[in-house]
């Protein structure tokens, strides 16, 4: 065997463990979902399963609950992504400016990211409890009226966003901090000599040089936001009055509570199409940035 061929074989051998898992847990489910999406496939009536072409997609297009779920998901993304970028940026800038103790503070900021969403959700459920929760206990002691954090249609979503920020901003801040630390000092020094300190320096030097990292953070979090599900499932169960039931939760309920796998698969493809748009957008913007 030639050395080149041997090296190629070695490369494939390294890839094999990941590739086999990828095929099993990603590729096969995608193919199965594509098959199911054009089938009427209800686990409770296997005898009536059959090919229905694009009927599931047409039904989903008219489904008022799906439309509502898309609005809820978009609302979450619109609240979550900008606030995450602002909070994480502030944390990263603060950490970057610290002369001492940065590592300890960074570890503390990063800590909530290490929790699973289940732990985070249960913890915040207690914080938010209307009558007996920590937040309202503090408010009551300050002589203020309790806030219906999770039971008011207008407050429930911001409450979920707040919990998600606590949970994820540390991880995003660390990514931004790494980007900040990669900016050569000479740029800041040159800008300082030209009188561009403070905000001017941030907008003229730091932010432009950090743009690829910010772009990455924005697009990956936007894609993540469209998969919004466990936070709402744990905190509100999708309520009040479906005000926090996103697309993924609706798909989950259709598939695993209603057992309508074909219809759920069709809705999954519709969500995948939306996420793909943002994926391509990121790809296009990054290529543009690189060129």
């Amino acid at each position: 065997m030639s050395p080149r061929k041997a090296r190629a074989m070695l490369g494939w051998a390294y890839l094999l463990p990941y590739a086999s898992l990828f095929v099993l847990f990603v590729l096969v489910p995608i193919v199965v979902a594509a098959y199911l999406a054009v089938m009427q496939f209800d686990l409770t009536s296997p005898k009536s399963a059959g090919f229905v072409a694009f009927r599931n997609f047409a039904d989903a297009w008219r489904d008022e609950y799906l439309q509502r779920a898309f609005v809820v998901t978009a609302k979450f993304a619109a609240m979550m992504v900008p606030s995450l970028v602002v909070v994480a940026f502030a944390l990263a800038l603060g950490l970057n400016a610290m002369p001492r103790g940065r590592n300890a503070v960074r570890a503390m900021v990063f800590l909530p990211t290490m929790f699973t969403v289940a732990v985070t959700g249960i913890l915040w459920q207690w914080f938010y409890n209307l009558e007996f929760g920590l937040f309202n206990f503090v408010l009551k002691n300050l002589g203020l009226a309790p806030v219906p954090w999770l039971s008011d249609k207008n407050i429930a979503m911001p409450s979920i966003v707040l919990m998600s920020l606590w949970w994820t901003s540390g991880g995003t801040a660390v990514i931004l901090l790494a980007g900040l630390q990669n900016i050569p000092r000479m740029f800041h020094e040159a800008a300082s000599l030209d009188g561009a300190d403070g905000w001017r320096g941030f907008w003229s030097v730091t932010f432009p040089l950090l743009r690829p990292v910010v772009l990455f953070v924005v697009v990956t979090n936007l894609i993540g936001a469209f998969q919004f599900f466990p936070q709402a499932q744990l905190l509100t169960g999708g309520g009040p009055e479906l005000a926090t039931r996103g697309v993924v939760q609706y798909i989950y309920e259709t598939a695993f509570n209603g057992y309508r796998l074909g219809y759920a698969a069709a809705m999954s493809w519709m969500l995948a199409a939306v996420v793909a748009v943002f994926g391509f957008l990121q790809f296009w913007l990054m290529r543009k940035e690189a060129s």
Binding site: N129, L130, E131, L150, S151, T236, G237, P240
Partner: peptide, 17 residues
């Protein structure tokens, strides 16, 4: 009764409230 909130009634009963 208190304003509706998830599981509020049962938690309250457990807590003697």
């Amino acid at each position: 009764i208190p304003p509706p909130d998830n599981q509020l009634g049962w938690i309250g009963f457990r807590q003697k409230k």
